[in-house]
Design a protein around this nucleic acid. Structure first.
Lengths: 359, 359
DNA sequence: AGCATAATTGTAACTAGTTACATATCTCAT
DNA sequence: ATGAGATATGTAACTAGTTACAATTATGCT
């Protein structure tokens, strides 16, 4: 059933049918109701492809990760994408996670835009340059960038700035209050902002920032674990990890190597994934509010789209979302006594203590 | 740039251009090459919407979860969707996770199919009836069902049967070998097959299947935890959980209430999520091979699509994927000594012991 | 009632491709 | 050289909508 035959059935012109289905079509309310009722009766729904072709718009929201060198098999990105999809669907859009490899990403994006396959783009980016490079030449398509760096010069498109620094400050402040001073950092991929926030905080408090306390960039559980064990050997009392994944790896390998978290060493993650509060010890984590992020991104995108459609020029929408911090079981205040104990030995004995009690 | 102007530029007809872009268009190899080269030079790519409209096909793979009453904020489904998307993209399809609420799901699906928005459907289903109901009337669209139940009568569409029973047998066998006999089960939503497999195994070995050892269906960390504590009170020595999420909740709450996993009670999950081997204790889990599942599903779907296009009737493709079991740290062999302890009393006293210790 | 203006509806020309059928070109055996 | 059969290309009719503009109908005001 297409529009022409349905128009004939309902005794109006195809234009009227089209208007009935378009929320801002100039049509009498009664007529619209009658047509929609008839459409439901006869099972007519406008064909999406045809709609998109002739209206030259699309209500598909493309989600891109500018640093998706590897497939995004990563809980944080998955959770974020899911949130974005959810927010998008509330705005009548259907989200599409684009997972082309890093090399063809630019081309892939260009092609989608040129095809007008996308009504809007949400680009989750770390670096400003890479994001701009990726979006250059496709300004015709409304886009929002979710970025951990603030934009240096005013953005040409919507920007949601995810400010991790406050969260990192809170977390490190928490550690400092707990008398931790030797704090290391396990780097993630493309985490310059996080690194800078860590370094800034440390310096501002007059703490040591030994390059040896900062790991190479890594991403998997296993890498996180290996780095954590290595840093622990250097006598650190706390480690900040660029992601909860790395933190979980750290927790695992540290425990496996006989250390007790948080007694011997405190661990802080970034992302605050859903499961982070449910593991043992529960993970103190810097919360990156995925919901707020997604909401703002979609909201801004919708505004840009509306502006475009109504011929207005695009104002520069910017919104900042601050990270928070939730202390949990993986960080501990060092007691004067606790500070003195030799972590290695003690933890080893502890590991086998409990059985005696219950056995 | 559309096909007509580009055809003019390259000095051929629009039909020839179209053929150059269609893999099975009857066209001279040199001509195709020349046109594709020219297209690259002039930046011409066929418009997807127009293609889909006139060819009345789509290369979008819709992923549906038949039991998505709540938003699918669930690691297993996310990991599976991701895998599906990955496999789909290898086959030239772009996957789209459809997350309408349960009530409008049927209508949503129908509309998409009627619009020919979808080239294929992957439906992740638990119940056979619900899956059939959802797909009835839209046989025109190729579909594959990933189901934990085998199809009772021959399927009208592709079927990937995820057989959890072997995994459950292995896991329960492992527990039994470890002298566990009092084994409870924390139910998930729509997990009849899992429940049946559990009951069958228990009965086949002459073990007690006390209805009181089987929880109400639940899905969140918190519910899993609460159920686990409740079951632990009944003196069980092991609990099988319908998902790793539930198992993680169980691990958390049991530990919080002073029990030690695996010494006091063993826990087995189902799904074998990426993080399950990295938590402490590492989670023994029944592995559901997401990759195999996705691969088979997409492969079958592509075959159905090819059959359709070439006018063949659809053979009944069925593929079975068996679950496996990986024992890890959350399950333990009971020693004769361990077996003697009166679980009931001991665990109850334990439940309120911890505060004193640390307070 | 008569006219200006506004609100609806209709007509027809778009959107950008695919594909059945017709036509042209090529290959090769006679 | 010629015609059959195969291969390649072109023409034109589709696909199913939107929308500018024209035409019609309704409303308000004198």
């Amino acid at each position: 059933m297409h529009i022409r035959s349905f128009a004939k059935i309902s005794g109006v012109s195809i234009a009227t049918v089209s208007r009935a289905f378009n929320p801002n079509g100039a049509i009498k309310a009664e007529t619209r109701e009658r047509i929609l009722r008839l459409a439901a009766k006869h099972g007519f729904t406008p064909n999406i492809h045809a709609q998109r072709m002739s209206s030259r718009t699309s209500s598909v929201l493309g989600i891109f990760y500018s640093f998706s060198a590897e497939p995004i098999f990563d809980y944080y990105n998955m959770e974020l994408a899911q949130q974005l999809a959810f927010e998008a669907s509330k705005a009548g859009f259907t989200a599409q996670l684009e997972l082309s490899s890093a090399e063809d990403q630019q081309q892939h994006l260009r092609q989608l835009v040129q095809n007008r396959a996308l009504g809007g783009i949400v680009l989750v980016a770390e670096g400003e340059e890479s994001a701009k490079a990726l979006l250059s030449g496709i300004e015709s398509c409304p886009s929002v960038v979710i970025s951990t760096t603030p934009w240096s010069n005013s953005p040409t498109m919507g920007l949601v700035h995810l400010n991790v620094a406050p969260g990192i400050d809170l977390a490190l402040g928490h550690l400092l209050q707990g008398k931790h001073t030797r704090i290391g950092y396990i780097r993630g991929k493309a985490d310059e902002t996080k690194l800078a926030a860590y370094q800034n905080f440390m310096r501002s408090k007059g703490l040591i920032v030994d390059p040896a306390w900062i790991s190479a960039p890594c991403s998997t559980f296993a890498e996180g674990g290996a780095m954590a064990v290595e840093l622990a050997r250097k006598g650190l009392s706390a480690i900040l990890c660029a992601t909860d994944i790395l933190a979980l790896g750290a927790l695992h390998d540290l425990t496996a190597s006989g250390l007790n978290v948080p007694r011997d060493i405190s661990i802080v993650g970034i992302d605050d994934l859903a499961f982070s509060s449910y593991i043992t010890p529960s993970l103190s984590s810097i919360g990156v509010p995925r919901q707020q992020l997604s909401q703002s991104a979609v909201e801004i995108l919708m505004r840009v789209i509306r502006d475009d459609r109504e011929g207005r020029s695009r104002p520069q929408y910017v919104h900042t979302v601050n990270a928070t911090f939730t202390p949990r079981g993986s960080t501990q205040v060092l007691t004067p006594k606790g500070k003195k104990i030799s972590p290695q030995k003690d933890s080893l004995s502890l590991l086998h203590k409990k059985p005696n009690k219950n056995g």
